[in-house]
């Protein structure tokens, strides 16, 4: 009973905050924005996971989607990519539908979502990122293999190209996934927790690649779990808990108050977040 009451209260709160943020946002041409989400609602077994989500992403930015477990972060990404049926709403990419913009959009699923015992090499997996460019029923040619090797090089994995993926460490597997996304040569990237369970070296490698992508004018949207690193790694944040609590530049939206609205009563996470915000403001 108590939980549902608090969550209801939180919803009311977030209703207000959404209105405020909406009014404060400068109105940009949605055709310029890499992704515009309008009134998106997603439900599993009639239980809403995302409720009336509205968001317009800025271009060439690193954007973090943060929120508590079960807030619908992965679902938001998947519904943008048409992997999850939506109850209502519309998502456009540069003013076009997903089917039209498909080749400009890359996706890194969660590492656990695939079977790592699968009999393919790291290079094979990276080549999969180019299948769209290769097209139906055509073989993977040397041009594409070379491009894939170059992507492995960028994440520091060229030497392990021939290794079967099951023999790689968790961090190396995540880098293979990242290289595969680079091989897609997209303009907008969706990544589902790329930093989950990786070693420090891989984390640095990933963030370097993200910054490189940003400098090339690309947009990256990451589901991110680690609150303390949000201000360091990302420029924009979407605070999500079934609805968009607030969204915008990290230094504007990443405040203790907004985090409290997003995370509700989870005090440990909250204090961690407040720490992060304080630390970030000192850095700034």
């Amino acid at each position: 009973m108590t939980t549902s009451t608090t969550s209801a209260m939180r919803n009311v709160e977030s209703d207000f905050s959404t209105t405020v943020v909406k009014a404060a946002k400068p109105i940009a041409d949605p055709r310029q924005s890499p992704v515009v989400i309008r009134a998106l609602t997603v439900a599993y077994h009639r239980k809403p996971v995302l409720w009336d989500v509205n968001y317009q992403a800025p271009s060439d930015a690193l954007i973090a989607i943060v929120g508590p477990n079960g807030a619908g972060k992965s679902t938001l990404i998947k519904s943008c990519l048409g992997l999850v049926p939506t109850a209502s709403g519309q998502v456009t990419f540069w003013g076009k539908s997903y089917a039209q913009a498909r080749s400009r959009i890359g996706y890194v699923p969660q590492r656990e979502s695939v079977d790592w015992d699968f009999p393919v090499s790291a290079l094979d997996v990276v080549c999969m990122g180019r299948y769209r460019k290769i097209g139906w029923c055509r073989p993977v040619t040397k041009v594409h293999r070379d491009a894939a090797l170059a992507c492995l090089e960028r994440v520091g994995m060229r030497d392990l190209a021939k290794r079967q993926i099951g023999q790689l460490s968790g961090g190396q597997q995540q880098r293979v996934f990242l290289a595969r996304t680079l091989a897609q040569e997209a303009d907008l990237y969706f990544m589902d927790e790329p930093f989950a369970g990786v070693d420090a070296a891989t984390e640095r490698a990933i963030i370097e690649v993200l910054r490189e992508l940003k400098s090339q004018g690309k947009t990256v949207i990451c589901v991110h779990h680690d609150l303390p690193t949000v201000p360091e790694y990302f420029d924009h944040a979407v605070l999500l808990n079934m609805r968009v609590v607030t969204a915008g530049p990290v230094n504007e939206v990443f405040t203790p108050e907004n985090l409290r609205k997003t995370y509700g009563g989870r005090l440990t996470l909250l204090s961690e977040a407040v720490d992060a915000v304080t630390r970030a403001s000192i850095v700034r």
């Binding site: 498909r102 699923p109 699968f118 393919v120 999969m128 299948y131 993977v140």
Partner: peptide, 22 residues
């Protein structure tokens, strides 16, 4: 042999396959 590539990606990572149009 015709659908080798498509079968492989659909078996390994169905989500990626779908987002790429396969």
């Amino acid at each position: 042999s015709i659908f080798y590539k498509e079968l492989r990606i659909a078996a390994f990572d169905p989500e990626l396959a779908t987002t790429q149009g396969f």
